[in-house]
Design a binder for these strands. Structure first.
Lengths: 209, 209
DNA sequence: CAGCTAAGTTCAATGACCGAACTGAAGTTG
DNA sequence: CAACTTCAGTTCGGTCATTGAACTTAGCTG
């Protein structure tokens, strides 16, 4: 048996793990929920070797959890985005994250908190809102900095962009920091369906020269 | 960075994956929920190399998800059992299993179905009973053979024992003579309590000649 | 006491992962 | 327009993890 498959197991969990059970894969998907869409942004935020990241993205596309499409504004820059199949992993991802928060807590409290957009309640391990008791999917979840967020860590542009409140699944919009916008702004999903300004919109990723 | 830690990640999901993200670990925990408690039964059912299984059980004990205690009847035979911390992984484990069932389905249907003991409803990805809409923990879940169960595979004694309906978390017991109900029974309070000794006996598996 | 079983450990071969360097295509700058 | 930069990977040698088989240790059992 290859050290990545589970040949003898005839079981839904084993089949799920053959798709998302390898190292880095669930963190790639987490970042996709956070709105990261470009190879270099995944790489910056994860710190995974480029070869491994490349291979994980390819298998996630092959299994239909992500799509890989050229960016309309910069066709040479592929955009990775969650499919419905990928978004369906949200309950599992959140449950595992919630267990980690409960049973492997970070000093100072969680780095990020996840709340129901319409009522502000926090979610439990089964994605039920603690306030209104409704099931909440990723589209209704706002991620905000938590009390334990360490501003010293993660000074890169991606981590900085992720310190702002944002809605899960919404693309991270990449804007050049340069005062003279010579480059055409890439079109993203956020541009097609912009979040109202008073609500939580897409977060901006400012590049430091 | 060692190929098992996620040093740069300051995130609850990464911390969870450092505990349960390695190969075989979640399948070991699945088997623990199924009631498997002895090294050789894990090994038979998983087919993992003994060295890896030994290492995974040790780290699960170190992290407090399992206990390792001598069997009262046979002190030289350690018994591995879930702790509360391990049982708290149920929502994550079930959500991942449910995703696999939905999005990486087995031909012929699921091998096992998980129903709420008190009403017989099936559980969704977030452990909510489809019939009574209640949150269901592992102690209230009965696992039964599903339509896709392949009797040809897994002729070993552990797999045979697991083809009978059983309550999650309860030690796996096999009675050679006593016929078991083929459908999940509605809940009675007696099911929650420890099974009387005369009904369970020592943990013996019937060996197929 | 010889044989059996359960629970591991040891070991050589293979595969996966890591980090750094490299490639090639496209856009940007002087 | 040539040099430079950015991006999205690929290549590669060294290290670590996993595999499968053989071996060890300890307590029964006939």
């Amino acid at each position: 048996m290859l050290p990545k498959s589970y040949d003898g197991q005839d079981c839904s969990l084993a089949r799920a793990l053959e798709v998302v059970g390898e190292r880095w894969t669930l963190l790639v998907l987490r970042d996709a929920f956070y709105g990261i869409r470009h190879f270099s942004d995944f790489q910056t935020h994860l710190g995974a070797p480029r070869a491994v990241l490349s291979e994980r993205l390819r298998t996630l596309v092959e299994h239909g959890l992500l799509t890989r499409r050229p960016d309309p504004g910069q066709p040479s820059r592929p955009v990775y985005a969650l499919t419905d199949k990928g978004r369906a992993l949200w309950p599992a991802l959140h449950a595992l994250r919630s267990w980690g928060e409960q049973h492997a807590p970070a000093p100072g409290g969680p780095r990020r908190v996840f709340v129901h957009d319409s009522c502000g309640g926090e979610l439990d391990a089964t994605s039920v809102c603690g306030t209104c008791r409704q099931q909440v999917g990723p589209e209704q979840v706002l991620a905000s900095p938590g009390p334990g967020l360490n501003p010293g860590l993660g000074q890169d542009a991606v981590s900085t962009a992720l310190t702002r409140p944002h809605r899960l699944g919404q693309p991270l919009t990449v804007l050049a920091a340069a005062p003279h916008p010579t480059r055409p702004r890439p079109t993203t999903q956020a541009d097609v369906r912009p979040t109202p300004p008073e609500a939580i919109g897409p977060h901006r990723l400012t590049r430091v020269p």
